[in-house]
Structures are given as structure tokens and as C-alpha cells.
Design a protein around this nucleic acid. Structure first.
Lengths: 152, 152
DNA sequence: TGTGAAACTATTCCGTT
DNA sequence: AACGGAATAGTTTCACA
């Protein structure tokens, strides 16, 4: 993992289909050498996958809600049950187990704020006993899939 | 936007470089027709961009921290100042302005928990007056870039 | 690693429904 | 207006130095 690899990762994070010609220019290497490096970065797993990012407004999912969850149930079984429940609900796009007084954070992507109630009911229908506080995003100041490569 | 378009979007969200042959099979259409549809979905903006997703552990950024921010400053100027500050810090990957008693939520991607202090200091060095509560992710139960296409 | 040839995709054109 | 098939163009990969 050298500076060239990091530059390649930075470029591909911005645009996954950057032509080899452009990459090779950026790192002062031939297209074939770049191709081999990218292949290596994929095989070794640095590049997990390449995905299309959709326009949230156009696909009618403009609303983002974060939900902080507290529970009194802390068994491994409950956690697995919870994991299955959130995995099965497509509007829930991200879930983390946290330290501190909040147990979980959920990120939901919804057509509108009213739709939150549907997901809420689906969740409490499957899982017993917990408290949820919803925070509706009024404005996205920063978003993206890119992470700094300097640490790699 | 018909069922075929939605299927195409679903496939490309999972793998942005799904071969046309495979897509055309999935939607029972010729490769050329699929090519045109994808082109249209890009031109009309449904597909915002295609990006490479990196393995967070391998690029040495395994730690996720959510930060809830409260502030007493609520001017438009302060907001712009805040936006510039978080935009300039690459470890901060997502920022939303919220409703309710919490003003902002930040998502940070870090090499380790200790690194949080560095970002914390960088933030409070640029912005006056606010309160931050950090919640460290112990486990990611669900993550991804995919959103449901049924609403589109 | 770089160069050039080959293979593979994807795209465009055109005739058709 | 949209599709399928054939020709074209572009990109990636391979063989070899």
C-alpha cells in the first residue's frame, strides 16, 4: 500500500468507473500497471465493492430519521432477534450498537416523516420492550461514502 | 420509471458493474435496451454516481463514532461556519441538522477511539460554544448504501 | 513495469414492431 | 416511442520484452 494505491482508492471512491487512462495519468503509471493494482486491491479486499448511489429525492425517499434506542434486554439472543428485525426492514439502512446510555442508533430512509410510524410499528411488533427517540433530519450538511485514505 | 427500471436500480445498487448481459436477463430485455435505460437513469439523475466502497478495517479506519451536538448559536452565519468546518474535516463523513432538543448529529470514521480527541479539538478550535456527546459504535449490525426502490 | 495485441464490454445505428 | 440485432467504439486484460 503506497501513495499510488491511495490515490487510486481516492479516485475510485469519487468515481468507481474512472477510466484507466485517467488513473494512469494521475499516478504516472501505464494503464496495464494500474489495472493490475486495482485487481490486487480488489482481491485483497481493500475495495469491498462498487455500488450505484441513487438520488434520494428522485427515488422518493428524501427523509432521513435517526433513532436512538434504549432497551432493558441485554442478552445475546435479544441482540440476534434485533439484528434480524432491522435487517428485514429495508428502510433501516444503518444500525450500530453503542457505548453509553444509548444502546442502539438506527438510520432510516423514508418517503416522508409520516412513514416513520409504519416502520416504528413494524419494529415494536417484532421486538418487546424498548424506548425510541426519533430525530428527524431537517438538512443534510454533509453526506457521502468517501473515507480518508491517508490511514491505509 | 417502471418495474424494469427499479430492478436495474436494485441491481446497480448492489453491484455497480453488473454486466449488461446479466441485467438484460434479469429484466427480460436486450442488452441494447438496458444500455439505453441505464443511460436515461443517469441523465435524469436517478443514478447520482457510482463509487467504490472500501473495507474500513483494511484501510485502518475501523472505528465509528456518532456525536450529538447542541448549540446556543442559531444564526445562518453560524450554520455556514459550521458547515465549512465539518466539510473540511475528512473524518466527519456525515452531518445532519435535526429537529428536537439535539441540534446536529455527526458521524465520524476514525482509526481508533483515541483519535476522536483530535477531531474534537479541531472542531472546538474552529467553532465557539457548543456541547458534544460522543457515542462509540461497538458493533455495526447493519450498514450499506442501498435504499428501497419500490418508492421510486 | 511498459508496450502492443487481443478479448471483452458496452454503445450506437438502423430497421422493425 | 421502444425494442432487437448487427456493426462500431471503447476499455480492460494478456503475452511478452
Amino acid at each position: 500500500m503506497d501513495d499510488r494505491d491511495r490515490t487510486i482508492l481516492t479516485l475510485l471512491q469519487k468515481d468507481a468507473q474512472t477510466p484507466l487512462a485517467q488513473i494512469s495519468e494521475a499516478v504516472s503509471l501505464s494503464p496495464s500497471a494500474c489495472s493490475r493494482r486495482i485487481q490486487r486491491l480488489e482481491e485483497e479486499g481493500y475495495i469491498a465493492r462498487r455500488v450505484a448511489v441513487l438520488d434520494r429525492r428522485l427515488v422518493k425517499l428524501p427523509t432521513t430519521v435517526f433513532v436512538l434506542v434504549r432497551t432493558s434486554r441485554h442478552s445475546g439472543e435479544w441482540l440476534e432477534h434485533f439484528r434480524k428485525a432491522v435487517t428485514a426492514i429495508p428502510e433501516i439502512v444503518e444500525v450500530h450498537r453503542l457505548t453509553g446510555n444509548v444502546d442502539y442508533i438506527l438510520k432510516m430512509v423514508l418517503p416522508d416523516v409520516e412513514h416513520y410510524d409504519i416502520v416504528y410499528k413494524r419494529l415494536i411488533g417484532r421486538l418487546e420492550l424498548f424506548e425510541m427517540s426519533a430525530y428527524i433530519s431537517m438538512e443534510t450538511l454533509k453526506a457521502g461514502t468517501e473515507v480518508p485514505t491517508s490511514y491505509a
